[in-house]
Design a protein around this nucleic acid. Structure first.
Length: 597
DNA sequence: GCCGTTTTCGGCCCGACTGTTTTCAGTCG
């Protein structure tokens, strides 16, 4: 995303929060949030838009347009600066604590002199909070718990741990007598790289929605059994909420799971609702309203009379709203509703996104030669078990000493061993000799060109000097892309999810160079990496760059991580033909040859 | 602040749950 857009997104988000804490008009707050979403989703730099082009964007009026122009001109928005002067910097942060919203944050600030998280802790300890009307011991205990929790774990989690937990919860729920269907929803289903809470939805017996009973209750007996089963799961530390339809539990590992029970006839509406995102849901409800309907987690209904229009499946609801079915990974209110409308009007579905089952090759995997746990044959067998027609053996290069990277001499011998295995496995699978070659800080490769020329597949990856300035990082990566032997650029930024920011190169320049050169950019599917991230993958696709979804497998189970890489690719809108791992055996071989200069 | 085959003014997305309330505000998703 162009940097102007990122900065403007932050400005509008901050204006929303500041307006909220100052008790301003809630609809104005929503308008700022919406403006942030619109700017975030722009495909061009906001600076390149004229005023009339801006006003034509849905959600952007003259006020937002003028603020965008002001920011492009001067680098700041006067109204935003004014708001910031009126609110201490730490007050907005209070709203980041679960249980504290704008009203409470404002009261803490005005009535208890709380202007930061540290102030809040002190105010809890010295009784200033308890002196406020409406804040009993339970509320204060809840806030103290949330504070301690946020400090211990932060509020986001890698999707790998969230997926595992969701699986355990879903399994427990599915085992309850009377449960018709179970599905993980929320940001996990949308394929997001980090997850706040795990949402699991259970369909249980109960009446369908109707004009007389628009919010039918799920069977209380089955619902109670579902909630009991989840509360009994290993690792449940605390029950936060338990009502007639909703259970929230907190696990010791720091994750929270929300379980909802709905009558089976409402499952589609509920699944759409709990999958979100919030912004996407709001967009759908607004759309429903404009068409004389109302959308809730129970049903899409006619406003007059309340007749049920659709409720059982998501596809029916989207269709009744005049939309093609929107895959969960696209539901971020980044233009998908408009695209689904256009597709629906043309009588077509949205393009089919890449699926895990489409993957037929792995181009980045390690063996015991460097830091993997599989022999060459074990790696080949793991690939065969996935139904793959090709696998590249890509152990670390010599600079990766801690990972037992191969010296030039060891690589020569390793290539021989791979070629030998390739002959033995030839009838079943193509075994390719490769290497994950370090891109050194100056952009040179960790092996000389004549050695690289002996390899079928070169995955070029940065591993060190990951705090480099953007200019240096850009030069470094461009130089690697220009190397005539490189096939795939591996985990391009070197970021680690929730842990390390990694390189911040000029992505438009990188994707243009990759397009010109014909190399693929990897989506590293490890939930620790997910690098490229979704936005960058979308930029690559726009530039016509092929993606490679690789698991970077160090052990056989790592192949299962492909699903996370696919989720990221789907968020970017990737179709199967955009991903080289979906190519047929001969097609892939031909593509690899085409990358050689 | 945005928006209009109900509206250029007066609306604007829907429901569950909790706490401290005696009828509802605040928060969350």
């Amino acid at each position: 995303m162009p940097s102007t857009n990122a900065s403007l997104t932050a400005v509008f988000e901050d204006m929303a929060r500041l307006t909220e804490v100052l008790g301003g008009n809630g609809f104005k707050v929503n308008a700022f949030v919406k403006a942030a979403r619109v700017v975030e989703a722009l495909e061009r730099d906001a600076a390149s838009f004229s005023r009339s082009e801006l006003v034509a964007l849905p959600g952007v009026g003259t006020g937002t347009a003028d603020r965008i122009l002001e920011f492009v001109e001067s680098g700041a928005v006067a109204d935003h600066e004014d708001l910031k002067e009126r609110v201490p910097a730490g007050v907005v942060a209070l709203m980041g604590i679960s249980g504290i919203g704008p009203k409470s944050a404002a009261r803490f600030w005005h009535e208890a002199e709380v202007e930061s998280i540290d102030d809040l802790k002190a105010a809890i300890d010295d009784g200033r909070l308890a002196a406020l009307k409406g804040f009993g011991q339970k509320k204060i205990d809840g806030i103290a718990k949330s504070l301690a929790f946020a400090e211990r774990f932060g509020d986001r989690h890698r999707r790998g741990v969230a997926a595992a937990l969701a699986g355990a919860v879903a399994e427990a729920v599915a085992g309850v007598e009377g449960v018709r269907r179970v599905e993980a929803a929320g940001s996990l289903r949308r394929g997001a790289e980090t997850i706040g809470d795990v949402d699991v939805l259970a369909a249980v017996p109960g009446p369908g929605p109707s004009a007389e009973d628009p919010t039918p209750a799920p069977d209380p007996g089955v619902t109670a059994a579902v909630f009991d089963a989840v509360e009994k799961l290993d690792g449940v530390e605390e029950v936060l909420v338990r009502g007639d339809t909703k259970l929230s539990v907190r696990f010791g590992a720091g994750l929270q799971a929300d379980v909802r029970a709905v009558p089976a006839a409402c499952f589609g509406a509920a699944l759409a609702y709990f999958t979100g995102s919030k912004e996407h849901n709001v967009a759908l409800r607004e759309r429903a309203g404009k068409r004389g309907m109302s959308l809730s987690e129970y049903a899409l209904t006619d406003k007059r009379g309340g007749a049920v229009v659709a409720s059982a499946t998501e596809a029916e609801i989207h269709g009744a709203l005049g939309l093609a079915f929107v895959p969960p990974e696209l539901r971020e209110d980044r233009g998908e509703v408009q695209r689904a409308e256009a597709a629906h009007d043309a009588g077509e579905p949205l393009p089919r996104l890449v699926e895990t089952a489409d993957l037929k090759a792995e181009l980045h995997a390690h063996t015991t030669a460097s830091d993997g746990v599989m022999s060459i044959d074990e790696l080949v067998e793991a690939a065969l078990a996935r139904g793959f027609h090709s696998v590249a053996v890509t152990d670390h290069s010599r600079s990766q000493v801690q990972a037992n990277g191969l010296s030039a001499g060891r690589l020569e011998k390793h290539i021989e061993a791979v070629r030998d295995a390739a002959k033995r496995w030839k009838k079943q699978i193509s075994v390719l000799a490769g290497s994950e070659v370090d891109i050194l800080a100056d952009g040179t490769m960790d092996y000389p060109d004549d050695l690289l020329a002996e390899l079928d597949v070169v995955v070029a990856s940065p591993h060190a000097a990951l705090a480099q300035e953007p200019e240096a990082a850009t030069r470094r990566l461009l130089r690697a892309i220009e190397n005539p032997h490189v096939t795939v650029m591996g985990h391009l930024t070197g970021r680690l999810v929730l842990k390390r920011e990694g390189l911040s190169p000029d992505m438009p320049a990188i994707v243009k160079a990759a397009a010109d050169r014909g190399v693929a950019l990897e989506i590293n599917a490890s939930p620790y990496r997910l690098d490229l991230r979704d936005r960058h993958a979308a930029l690559a696709l726009e530039a016509g760059v092929r993606l490679a979804i690789n698991t970077d497998a160090h052990g056989p189970d790592n192949f299962l991580n492909a699903v996370h890489g696919v989720a990221t690719a789907r968020r970017a809108g990737a179709q199967a033909r955009d991903v080289v791992n979906t190519f047929g055996r001969e097609e892939l071989a031909a593509w690899i040859r085409s990358t050689k200069r």
